[in-house]
Simulated assay, not measured.
Amino acid sequence: MSPGIIVLVSAVALGVVLSVLKSRFDGRFRGTRAVRAAGAAGEKEAVDDATAAAGRISAADLGTGLGERATMLQFSSAFCAPCRATRRTLVEVEAMVPGVKHIELDAESHLELVRRLDIMRTPTVLVLDATGAIVTRASGQPRKADVIAALGTAVDATSPAER
């Protein structure tokens, strides 16, 4: 075999592996560090007040109120095709689930919040509980079933006193 063939086969194999990894993780919700640590300890509340404050988003940060039970916060950009599809999905879920609010923010217009929340790409969807604590997040276009499951986690994460 010539070195050119070996390089070509290696490049194709690498491309296939990266494509499979991207499709596996793109748009999937994953928990935040604070939620994973609290879940591992068997608790439903934040690890500590400092960690909770760092992962909490207020109505002042968004310029509008939070949802009564949960909030789906979407970071988008102007020329992002998956952002439009994600918006449609989240609006449908908002109509289906009472007490849930969808808020879409332009990432370019909210750079301070984007940096604080470590948003690396659009669309990114954060699911917040009723208090504004980040329960889970997804980078890429999420499926409707995954959004509904993430909302269930957000509603369950709110303690009974806060409901």
Rank of each mutant, 00 (worst) to 15 (best):
S77T: 15
S109H: 07
G67P: 02
A11E: 00
F25E: 05
V147N: 05
T158A: 15
A70T: 02
A161W: 14
V125I: 09
E92H: 08
G27I: 02
I134F: 01
E92W: 01
A54I: 03
L113Y: 08
I5H: 09
L126P: 03
A53G: 12
I119Y: 03
F75C: 08
S159M: 07
A95C: 02
V17L: 12
D49T: 13
T71H: 02
V114N: 05
H110K: 13
R88E: 13
G65P: 04
L128I: 02
L62A: 08
E162L: 13
I6T: 11
G152F: 03
E94S: 05
V12G: 01
E43K: 15
I148V: 15
L90F: 05
A52N: 07
P3R: 08
G4C: 05
A154G: 07
L18W: 07
K101L: 13
F29G: 05
S159Q: 07
I103K: 05
G39E: 14
G55P: 01
D26M: 02
V93L: 06
L14A: 14
S19C: 02
R28C: 02
A81S: 13
T136K: 03
S23E: 10
R163S: 09
H102M: 04
D49V: 12
G39L: 13
A138L: 02
A13G: 06
A53R: 15
V9I: 14
A133P: 00
C80P: 08
P3V: 01
L151G: 06
L111E: 15
A157C: 00
D146P: 00
M1Y: 03
D146K: 02
R84Q: 14
D118T: 09
A107L: 11
T122I: 05
H110R: 15
P160V: 09
L111T: 15
D156Y: 11
V97E: 12
R88M: 10
H110E: 11
S10M: 12
G31D: 13
V47P: 09
T64R: 12
L105D: 03
T158W: 00
S2Q: 10
K101Q: 12
I103S: 04
A37H: 03
V135P: 08
L73D: 04
V125R: 04
L128D: 03
A40H: 05
K44N: 13
L111W: 09
G65T: 14
R33W: 10
G67D: 04
T153C: 03
D48Q: 12
I134W: 00
C83M: 04
T86A: 11
V127K: 04
A53H: 14
A37R: 14
A52T: 11
I57Q: 09
G140M: 00
R115C: 00
G42L: 12
A78P: 01
S159P: 01
L126Y: 06
A38Y: 08
T64S: 13
A161H: 13
E104V: 10
A54S: 14
K144V: 08
A149C: 00
T86I: 02
L66D: 06
A85H: 09
P142G: 03
V97R: 11
A46V: 10
T71N: 03
L8S: 14
R33E: 14
T131Y: 02
L126I: 07
L66K: 06
A133I: 00
S109P: 00
I5P: 00
I6P: 00
V97N: 03
G63V: 04
G65V: 08
S159C: 01
V125P: 07
D48I: 11
D146C: 01
L62P: 11
E68C: 02
V114S: 06
E112L: 12
K44H: 14
A54V: 08
